[in-house]
Each structure stands twice: as structure tokens, then as C-alpha cells.
């Protein structure tokens, strides 16, 4: 049985390495962010005059706001469409169409963000530009971001609805409830945990997305005054400046990365905690 024991040791070691990567990431973010955190403290990221890293002005607030606005907007678009799409495949679509719809949603999930960005830049931005400006603004970015995170909501809601006990639905139908009433009173409340997880997971995707927003939001660091004003998110800022940033500036970029990482990790742990309770 020696080989059995060595198999256990080898696989467990590999598993430990896989699990440790996340710690390694957090460790390196902390190490790189430490100089900025030590020298500047946290408050200067919110109280500095502006974002001019070369003259040591490190106000991250406009970028945090832009990140929050685009992510929240994306969820406002993705949640209703994604849930509707899950309801569609489970209750409205003929069998064949339902199969195709699921396949296409999975395909949508696999399209690279840079391709979404390209399409948004070449097709959507010129359309938005008819409302004024260049078309590269928070509105365009939000729409494309919403489309990108939609499959997450749709697929998780679909799974949650499909997992509902059939007898509930039959029971409701046998009581003479119409299709929309069954969906509204029985299906959606019953699947709300799964749908909620889908929306939260979509939110982490939206927070984490860089490329499409980088290509579409206009990238000007200013407090957004309306949806049609350009903006720059934290992610886009890192992508734009890491290439030339040095010393303190570089460290501040890692601070913003750390912020993203912490927010996203908290949401993910919350989801897995909820799921643990359910099981």
C-alpha cells in the first residue's frame, strides 16, 4: 500500500499548492501596496485634490465611483434580462428553442471581453454618440458590461429554477393558477436564493471586468456628472498606468488592486457561506 500513501501525499500537496495561490496573490498585493499604505495612509486616497500621481496627488474617489456606477448599472441591465431569459427557457420556449437558447447564452458567456470592447467601440459608441459626445462614456460601458455579465445571471437562475421540485409547479397549476402567477408566486420566490447568488456572482464579474470598460468608458479621471460623461474605473486605471508607474505610483495601483480583490472576495465568501447554509 506504499503507492497509495504516496498518491495521497502527492495529490494533497498539489491541492495545497492550488489553495495557496490565493494567499500568494493577497501576499504580493499587500507587499507591493504596503509602501503606499504606510506613507500615505488610507484617507489620502479620498481627500487628495485629484489623481495626478506624478505630482503625488492620489485621489481614487472618482474611479471608485465610476467602478460602482458601471457595475451597478450593469446589474440593473443584466438581472431582469437574465432572469427573464431563465424563465423563458423553463416555461415559455418550445423544447428545441430552449435548448438553443441555453447554448447561445453559454456562447455569450464565452465571448472575450476584448471582443465585446471592440464591438462596443465600433458599433455601439457611434450610436451613443448621436446623443452627444464621442460615445465613449459610462453609459456605453455599462450597457456592454451588462451584456457581458448577463449569462452569469441567466445560467445560475436557470439552474435554480430547474432544480425546483416539479410538484410545486404542478400543484400550483392544479389550483388553477395561471402561468404568470405560478412564476411570480411560486417559482421566483422558490428560486430566490439561486437567483440571488447569480446576481451577486455577476456583480463580482462586473467589478472585475477591465478590458471592455477600458475600451468604452473614455478613461478621463473625473467625477461622473451624468451617465453620458466619460469616466475611468479602478481596473482601467491599473491597465493604463501600470506600464510606466514607478515607486509610490506603482504602489498606489496595487492598493487599488487590493481594494478590488477585497470587495470581490467578500462577495464570493458571502455566496459560498449562503450556499453552505443551504446544504
Amino acid at each position: 500500500m506504499r503507492s497509495d500513501r504516496s498518491l495521497t501525499i502527492v495529490t494533497r500537496t498539489l491541492a495545497a499548492i492550488s489553495a495557496a495561490i490565493v494567499l500568494l496573490i493577497i501576499g504580493f498585493l499587500l507587499r507591493e501596496a504596503a509602501p503606499a499604505l504606510r506613507q500615505l495612509g488610507l484617507s489620502r486616497f479620498f481627500t487628495d485634490e485629484s489623481w495626478h500621481p506624478l505630482s503625488s496627488q492620489f485621489n481614487l474617489t472618482p474611479m471608485i465611483v465610476a467602478t460602482l456606477v458601471t457595475s451597478a448599472g450593469a446589474i440593473l441591465i443584466a438581472a431582469p434580462l437574465g432572469i427573464a431569459s431563465a424563465v423563458f427557457v423553463n416555461f415559455y420556449a418550445p423544447h428545441r428553442l430552449a435548448v438553443w437558447h441555453r447554448r447561445l447564452i453559454e456562447l455569450l458567456a464565452g465571448i472575450p471581453s476584448v471582443v465585446f470592447g471592440l464591438w462596443g467601440l465600433m458599433v455601439l459608441a457611434p450610436i451613443v454618440a448621436t446623443f452627444g459626445g464621442s460615445g465613449q462614456n459610462l453609459f456605453t460601458a455599462t450597457i456592454v458590461l451588462g451584456l457581458m455579465v448577463l449569462p452569469t445571471v441567466a445560467l445560475l437562475s436557470d439552474a435554480a429554477i430547474a432544480a425546483l421540485p416539479r410538484p410545486w409547479i404542478q400543484g400550483a397549476a392544479a389550483l388553477g393558477m395561471g402561468r404568470s402567477a405560478i412564476i411570480g408566486w411560486v417559482v421566483l420566490p422558490g428560486a430566490r436564493r439561486g437567483i440571488g447568488s447569480g446576481i451577486m456572482l455577476a456583480l463580482t464579474r462586473a467589478f472585475g471586468e477591465t478590458m471592455a470598460v477600458l475600451m468604452l468608458a473614455g478613461n478621463i479621471v473625473e467625477m461622473p456628472s451624468s451617465l453620458l460623461s466619460p469616466g475611468r474605473t479602478l481596473n482601467a486605471n491599473i491597465a493604463l498606468e501600470l506600464g510606466y508607474a514607478t515607486a509610490g505610483h506603482r504602489s498606489v495601483l496595487f492598493v487599488s488592486g487590493l481594494m478590488l480583490m477585497l470587495v470581490v472576495s467578500c462577495i464570493v465568501l458571502l455566496i459560498s457561506h449562503r450556499r453552505g447554509h443551504q446544504a
Binding site: P167, A172, G176
Partner: peptide, 26 residues
Amino acid sequence: LRRHVGMIFQQPNPFAMSIRRNLELP
């Protein structure tokens, strides 16, 4: 039709709601 022709299933299938709501919803 289903209002006038009720149905009871093999497995009891109350909704995951309060007793009152189960009766009042339909």
C-alpha cells in the same frame, strides 16, 4: 377548469409559505 376540477397529488405539495398563505394565494 382547474378551479372547478381540483387535484391532490401523491406527495403532499404545499408551497414553502405560511399555512394561511397556502390557502389564500389560490
